[in-house]
Design a protein around this nucleic acid. Structure first.
Length: 308
DNA sequence: CATAGAACCTGTATGC
DNA sequence: TGCATACAGGTTCTAT
């Protein structure tokens, strides 16, 4: 569920409440939420440490803890929420689908709730970023948790090398939508913002990335950054009660969506009705007029088909 | 190595 | 009302 704008909204809320506080201890409510962890004792070693930073790269969140060689990583998966609770609310009133609770020194707590259980927590060792630059939003430290080290920087990261990213994207023949969803090229983009980015870029979701060229691919990354900046400003997208910020509030970017979830609605650029299909196994919304294959692209595609 | 599809879960909406 | 099926904001494993 949560993509970069939702995770960033949550990150800011967590930072506001937790930065500078001491993490008393981590309570795991299910074994599954720690399934990525080989050493469960690692969580105990995080207790009693001050929270220096609440950081994010793409959809990964982590807390940098004073004097620890490991960070507390949280991935929200499809349905994860982080809810800030104080007083009696933190004491342990049962919360449906609670997966973990991060108890703080001020009798408050951050509760990780996850209906579909695709999310997880990890006490993950920190390693130097390959480029020696700060790891992501919310931190100036050039260390990244191992569980997040395989993903690229995201479009809102000032240290993203968009030229290098678009160059790498141009070397795959996968559909552009699949490439946008592949966190190894550029991270943070999920199903909503992939569709919104492609609408903004007037591109058919199934055009092979290799057909677009480095310049246009760099433009697509720029479009993703623009869409997601607007979405962060609106507090993210809430289709239902599954995505909420740390105070339990909804985001309002849903009003600004051009195509995602807009089946049968008129395209706000040309009036053609928005259609839905499947690309890369994911529901995909697009305007059949604005996002049609261009003549050159069609020709190129047909030539490739004749090769078979 | 690159790529595509299945698998992992729970809940809700839809159709018969 | 009951039941079966499809689908949902993501990532990771497996097969080709």
């Amino acid at each position: 569920m949560p993509e970069l704008p939702e995770v960033e909204t949550i990150r800011r809320g967590v930072e506001r409440h937790l930065r500078g506080r001491v993490l008393d201890h981590v309570e795991l409510h299910t074994a599954r939420v720690a399934r990525r962890e080989t050493d469960l004792g690692a969580f105990a070693r995080l207790g009693g440490r001050r929270i220096l930073d609440v950081a994010r790269r793409g959809k990964f969140l982590w807390m940098v803890l004073e004097g620890s060689d490991a960070a507390l990583v949280i991935h929200l998966g499809m349905s994860g929420q982080l809810l800030h609770r104080t007083g009696a609310g933190a004491a342990g009133e049962p919360v449906r689908h609670a997966a973990a609770t991060f108890h703080l020194d001020d009798d408050a707590a951050l509760v990780f709730v996850d209906q579909r259980t695709f999310g997880y927590v990890s006490a993950s060792l920190l390693s130097p970023t390959p480029d020696g630059l700060p790891a992501g939003a919310g931190t100036e430290i050039a260390l990244i948790p191992l569980v997040a080290a395989h993903i690229a920087r995201d479009p809102l990261d000032p240290y993203l090398d968009a030229g290098a990213a678009s160059e790498r994207m141009s070397r795959t023949s996968s559909a552009i939508k699949r490439v946008l969803l592949d966190q190894r090229y550029v991270s943070g983009i999920g199903n909503i913002y992939a569709d919104e980015t492609l609408w903004a870029s007037r591109l058919h979701p199934e055009i092979p990335a290799s057909m677009l060229g480095v310049e246009r691919l760099a433009g697509v990354i720029g479009a993703a950054a623009e869409v997601m900046r607007s979405a962060v400003a609106a507090g993210g997208t809430s289709f239902d009660a599954l995505y909420v910020d740390v105070e339990g509030g909804a985001g309002y970017f849903g009003r600004e969506l051009a195509v995602y979830g807009q089946l049968g609605q008129p395209c706000r650029r040309c009036g053609t009705l928005v259609e839905k299909g499947v690309v890369g196994g994911r529901g995909t919304y697009a305007c059949p007029t604005c996002q049609a294959w261009s003549a050159a692209e069609t020709q190129h595609r047909d030539m490739n088909w004749q090769d078979w």
